[in-house]
């Protein structure tokens, strides 16, 4: 079984055959060996790793957090998936919170890095900035609304 792995923005592949694995990173790092898996416990070449999943793509190994995606390379069609998203950009809440200020309206022209919306969580205010220069096509957030992580707040084109 072979899968493509994206970890913290870097890609590689993992091949699993019986109780052997081969992890081949694009930058030349290669890990090979015998493994055993039991619940959240992985033994790899005799060393012990505790692996726990978190929210979304977050996965923790021995107290370290990684962002990891694993997918079947056959499912990837060109022009989709990881490819950069030209033109339209959706700005999503990075954490759950409450919308306290909306700084732009649909139709506004914005610069890259310009503040779009302010979300508050646990008494801390976080200003969401525009990833690009362009025009605001949609403001989905409502003042005082509670939003979840990943919820789309503004769309910039």
């Amino acid at each position: 079984m072979k899968r493509r792995v994206i970890v913290n923005g870097r890609s590689g592949t993992i091949e699993i055959e019986g109780s052997r694995l081969r992890y081949d990173r694009e930058d030349g790092v290669l890990i090979e060996g015998e493994f055993s898996l039991e619940g959240t416990s992985v033994l790899l070449n005799g060393r012990s790793y505790r692996v726990s999943k978190g929210a979304g793509t977050e996965i923790w190994v021995n107290g370290r957090q990684l962002s990891m995606d694993v997918f079947d390379p056959r499912d990837l069609r060109p022009g989709q998936g990881m490819a950069a998203n030209h033109g339209r950009q959706e700005i999503a809440a990075s954490m759950p919170g409450k919308v306290i200020r909306i700084l732009v309206a649909a139709g506004d022209t914005v610069e890259e890095g310009q503040g779009l919306i302010v979300v508050e969580a646990m008494k801390m205010q976080n200003e969401m900035k525009s990833p690009k220069s362009g025009r605001v096509v949609e403001v989905r957030a409502r003042p005082d609304a509670t939003v979840g992580a990943g919820e789309i707040l503004v769309v910039v084109e």
């Binding site: 079984m1 899968r3 970890v7 993992i14 699993i16 694995l21 070449n45 790793y49 996965i59 997918f71």
Partner: peptide
């Protein structure tokens, strides 16, 4: 990288 391999192993077998 061993930690990454362990995590990738778990995710691969889980998705499978």
């Amino acid at each position: 990288p061993e930690s990454e391999a362990a995590a990738a192993l778990v995710l691969t077998l889980e998705s499978n």
